[in-house]
């Protein structure tokens, strides 16, 4: 290395030898650069910058609280409905933002994919990582909620990183399939938007899971109940609400284990599908 330090300047100077690195170090470097780029892109050109990512869930929280607890007269059993909503909403936002940016991650970088050879999967990984960074920032929002609603941060909060990891895996797995699919079917992006909207209501974010069990009768109720229970996000979100708002260990361990299994399946399928079709990316994108 020391020999590289001394050199003449000018165009035709002896070249500086760059370190020869292994694939792992190379990809880590690139991943860092891509995440940096994605995170910066989100806040570029907006005066409030990072505050926007905090503002958005707050507004939704207020709207849902007003609409559902005051007008729709939803009966909430717990310490604080606003805190309940924000706990679930943050987890959900991570999921939905990650999913939507992962879906477009390959297509929106068509210029790179068509002309530069690298592990394109990093584009999808970095889009989900950027959503993760965003999510971690948004966790700051919890602090005023803890203060205002006299919540006590307890041991169950230690489970939060695990929940984040499971969500990350789930988003990444689904995202890989969608990112690859979107190369071939451009309208997948719009489909994802619509499906995510429905998915939101199939996840106990503004209502409680107990409500689903209470209304588990009739064809509609049973179908709805089934969909909610099959939805892995149900168990991730409920667990997050448990550890944040209720200060208790997750009440539905079986559900959480199911979510972990689904996340693992999603990653396996995602990696498989992506690996199979990536060879056609450069020509199709």
């Amino acid at each position: 290395m020391a020999t590289n330090e001394f050199r003449a300047s000018g165009d035709l100077a002896a070249p500086l030898r760059a370190p020869r690195t292994g694939a792992w170090a190379r990809n880590r470097e690139l991943l860092g650069e891509l995440v940096r780029r994605d995170v910066q892109a989100r806040y570029r050109g907006s005066v409030l910058g990072i505050l926007w990512s905090l503002f958005n869930p707050l507004v939704f929280m207020v709207v849902y609280t007003v609409v559902f607890s005051h007008f729709a007269n939803l009966h909430f059993q717990g310490k604080s409905y606003p805190a309940y909503i924000i706990a679930g909403l943050l987890a959900w936002n991570f999921f939905s933002q990650g999913l939507s940016s992962a879906t477009s991650s390959i297509v929106s970088n068509a210029g790179l994919v068509r002309k530069v050879s690298f592990s394109w999967v990093l584009l999808t990984v970095s889009s989900v990582l950027a959503a993760l960074v965003n999510y971690l920032i948004s966790l700051v929002l919890l602090i005023p909620f803890f203060i205002i609603f006299h919540l006590v941060p307890g041991w169950p909060l230690l489970l939060l990183p695990v929940l984040v990891l499971v969500t990350f895996a789930l988003v990444l797995g689904l995202g890989l399939v969608l990112a690859a699919g979107n190369v071939f079917f451009r309208d997948l992006e719009y489909l994802v938007t619509v499906v995510t909207l429905v998915w939101f209501y199939l996840t106990p974010i503004i209502y409680q899971l107990s409500l689903v069990y209470q209304h588990d009768h009739g064809t509609l109720g049973r179908t709805f109940g089934l969909l909610v229970k099959l939805n892995p996000m149900t168990w991730i979100v409920t667990a997050q609400q448990d550890v944040i708002e209720a200060n208790q260990w997750p009440q539905h361990w079986h559900g959480l284990l199911y979510a972990v299994a689904m996340a693992a399946v999603a990653v396996a399928v995602g990696v498989g599908v992506f690996g199979r079709v990536r060879r056609r990316f450069a020509e199709e994108v």
Partner: peptide, 20 residues
């Protein structure tokens, strides 16, 4: 910087050749 990363180069290396 992005192109350097695509080639797998660390940021500190690119910083050194940046002016060139």
């Amino acid at each position: 910087y992005l192109n350097g990363a695509l080639l797998g180069l660390p940021r500190r290396y690119i910083r050194r050749v940046f002016d060139d």
